[in-house]
Design a binder for these strands. Structure first.
Lengths: 216, 216
DNA sequence: ATTTGATATGACCAACTGGTCATGTCGCAG
DNA sequence: CTGCGACATGACCAGTTGGTCATATCAAAT
């Protein structure tokens, strides 16, 4: 993360032009992924010349990096807000609110979420490893802090493996958001573009299962 | 799934040549995804001429479709085998054995698994929706049958939402396999290429959490 | 009025893509 | 020996890609 991905020229630009370029770039990367993203299309959508793009950024990787860092900032910001605003509640209430906040984020920033999904399994994306590690670290710190606090308050069943609990929460939450965002990923919940009220009910059912378990 | 993806010419070929071509194709698609896969590279690896490839298959989509159907067959075969071989056991034993079988499959067929992951979030892959639906249907039927049987035997806590249980299992299992196969996806379990014994322990911890829940 | 430096531009480039096709090889039937 | 049909081949095509660069524009400073 050491190099500056955007040239100074870009920062001197009028704000609305910067916005147009960033917007076009996020659109392009979010719905095409890194490699299929076309800079020709990008400049066309942004309404600038090809040469201009290369006055703003050193190359395709630079644009991508810039976009990704902006996106990561928004995620971090949201996580912090949710964590702080539920600090004194019970673990399972916190989990419920966290998942709701996740769904809200994904509805408000569908392109950011789509970008994240695209990156996840394409080993050829530059900096993928670095970026994925950053995202997972945030998630880990988030759930880790919820779990530690819950344990301190005696809300957790004794003898539970903390790494296992963390893995479980991360897995279920991530998949829930995926199912809301992506069609055909979800066997029975039919979460994709489901009405608000259904989503809320499913969230409660899931948290209940996590709390009480499957066994009789 | 109506059209025949491979030409008759291909089926007339000596078995070892067929193998070479299919092998090269699976390699290429598995580590490049659909769009980045290059037919020039593919023919080079397979040791055949470009023109020959087009005597075997109608186009890139045809090759892809053929490969995918073969892969899907292997998955189906494995699922059926595991289901039958554990038919009379307790739900949580079945789950443990299923997850172990999943890990084994992924170690034996890493390219098939990689292909599946690549397809998952790339909306531009042809037939993606059709193929994803097929995979999820298999998973749904599998877990659905385990859960129904468990309920009939009274192994499930009463009042549990079956769709929620199914979603939970599908989510956790899928993510577990992903974490074993892909680096940096997993916050604390460090499953990627972990030694057998660690993986086994993690499986038991997870199943325990699923069975008994998180709450005190 | 002239110079200067920052910014804008799109024709251009080599490299590659999926796909085609005229030509060739070769075993076998007549 | 001839001819035929199945299969093999790689030069070739139009289209697209990321990236470059000589040239143009234009406001501010002199």
């Amino acid at each position: 993360m050491s190099q500056q991905p955007a040239r100074t020229t870009f920062s001197h630009l009028p704000a609305d032009k910067q916005e147009r370029v960033l917007n076009a770039a996020l659109n392009e990367f979010a719905d095409q992924g890194y490699h299929q993203a076309s800079l020709n299309r990008l400049v066309a959508r942004a309404g600038i010349a090809k040469g201009s793009l290369y006055q703003y950024f050193p190359n395709k990787e630079g644009i991508f990096r810039h976009i990704f860092q902006l996106a990561l900032g928004r995620v971090r910001q949201t996580l912090v807000a949710v964590k702080d605003s539920t600090e004194n509640e019970n673990l399972f209430i916190r989990l419920e609110k966290s998942l709701k906040a996740g769904v809200r984020f994904l509805q408000e920033h569908p392109r950011i979420y789509s970008l994240y999904l695209k990156i996840q399994f394409d080993r050829q994306v530059p900096f993928r490893q670095e970026f994925l590690a950053a995202v997972r670290r945030h998630a880990g710190e988030y759930f880790g802090s919820l779990i530690s606090r819950a344990r301190a308050r005696g809300e957790l069943r004794p003898g539970i493996s903390e790494p296992a609990a963390l893995f479980l929460l991360d897995a279920v939450f991530d998949r829930f958001l995926q199912a809301v965002a992506v069609p055909y990923l979800d066997v029975t919940f039919n979460l994709h573009q489901a009405p608000e009220e259904i989503v809320q009910r499913r969230i409660r059912e899931l948290i209940d299962l996590l709390r009480e378990g499957l066994a009789a």
